[in-house]
Design a protein around this nucleic acid. Structure first.
Lengths: 238, 238
DNA sequence: CGTAGTTTTGAGATCGGTCAATATTTGTGG
DNA sequence: CCACAAATATTGACCGATCTCAAAACTACG
């Protein structure tokens, strides 16, 4: 299952046999968690980072008055909180959107790995910087795109991220209800519902109880003015 | 002038004399650039990262139809594009908001430094992860806060970031006109104007032609439901 | 002192929010 | 397998925060 993690790295950078071996050795046996489990609690000290082998996770921040913003979604192959290696505590929560298979990698192992294999250190640093790039793209989405554009951009992003790790990017279970989509896109569940219907009527996207079906990727990209470059699929050698 | 950079690091982590020396040795002589200069162009390959010694910068993304989102603001002491050390090309531009003093640090120097001093490597990795935390907070702001809340949150953040590097956080020149504030906050210049007047009438903030005057920090924090923790001022040892 | 950039203000439009009712689906115990 | 409860989705009517367009006032600066 670690194959997806390797695929994600290989989508951007080469990996020597030696490096691949070191990564495989890094990852302890996995465990399962059910949908809606909270994997990481805001503010709690972390000694491990969670590699997501299968399933979907999200990161989210809550406000005192109950408002919630989902700041990122993770797919199989992602290190969900590698940034905790340096931050030690996170200012957000992480929750399973679907049943998930996880592996908890001790920070101590990561420290040793990046010291012994500096190039892998740069690759993992790259990985957290790539997450940040997605955060910036979501800022763009939240600040500048219409409701329909935000929805379209989200599904375009997920499409490419899933394809990259050899999953079906056209039809997948996102495990999010409309209220959760609303929390990710800075809108209300009611308006998500109406906008989803609009996208369905236009034969762009069909979303039914967590099951996403991309009907017209190019149409969604046009609607979102989607520009792939923020996913760094053409990364330079490190 | 590198003192601000050291102060920013010291606000979160200890620094040995040896480490401080290594950082000082890293930074080449500075240069000046005028207000509104574009420091980094989207997509261009970078061999150096820019340390901002004095002045204000912003990162922004443009859309084909002319919409623009400012995704982050940098103050003196910040490494404005340290993430380019691993990304090599950036998906956004970086522009000087005020006249700036910059130092261009070669990626090759950074590579040598982090290999020879792994702890400094973790500190700089932390620094890019801290930037990402601010991006997530801006996502929260753009997605969940009202226009007034977004404005308030921005000035609260700038206050603390400036104080941390021994600058005046109550009264400072941000160098942004109302249209630029609008691009940062996902609203229109007209509405920025009206909201600014509201904050002035409520004696919370006075903003006049780029000059910010925080009149009531606690009031702004309450309005924004501001929570400092995302700035990681109480970081754990690395 | 003229001109360009910026800020301010007004009137009207609209996107998305709010509230509330209804319908549908899913899960559970018997 | 059914009956019910809980969660989720859908729809309608109305509201309001923010946008749009346009004009006027101010400011900076060569």
């Amino acid at each position: 299952m670690i194959e997806r993690h390797l695929a994600k790295i290989r989508a951007r950078h080469s990996l020597s046999a030696d490096e691949e071996q070191a990564i495989r050795a890094l990852v302890p046996p996995s465990r399962q968690v059910p949908r809606n489990s909270i994997i990481v609690h805001e503010g709690k000290r972390l000694e491990v980072s969670t590699l997501l082998l299968d399933g979907l996770l999200c990161r989210y921040k809550d406000m005192p008055d109950g408002k919630r913003q989902i700041t990122q979604i993770h797919v199989g192959g992602d290190f969900a909180d590698l940034h905790a290696f340096t931050l030690k505590r996170l200012e957000h929560n992480i929750m399973a959107l679907t049943d998930c298979t996880l592996s908890a990698v001790p920070h101590e192992s990561i420290r040793v790995l990046v010291e012994q294999q500096p190039r892998l250190g740069r690759l993992y640093w790259f990985s957290t910087n790539l997450d940040a790039s997605m955060n910036r793209e979501w800022e763009l989405s939240l600040g500048q795109r219409s409701a329909a554009g935000r929805l379209a951009a989200l599904f375009c992003e997920l499409h490419y991220r899933l394809v990259m790790v050899d999953m079906n990017g056209d039809s997948f279970n996102l495990g999010m209800n409309q209220a959760q989509l609303a929390d990710a896109l800075g809108m209300t569940a009611v308006h998500v519902n109406r906008t989803l219907r609009m996208l369905r009527d236009q034969r762009l996207l069909d979303y039914h109880r967590g099951e996403a079906n991309i009907l017209d990727l190019k149409g969604l990209e046009m609607l979102a003015e989607f520009d792939l470059s923020y996913l760094y699929l053409d990364a330079d050698p490190l």
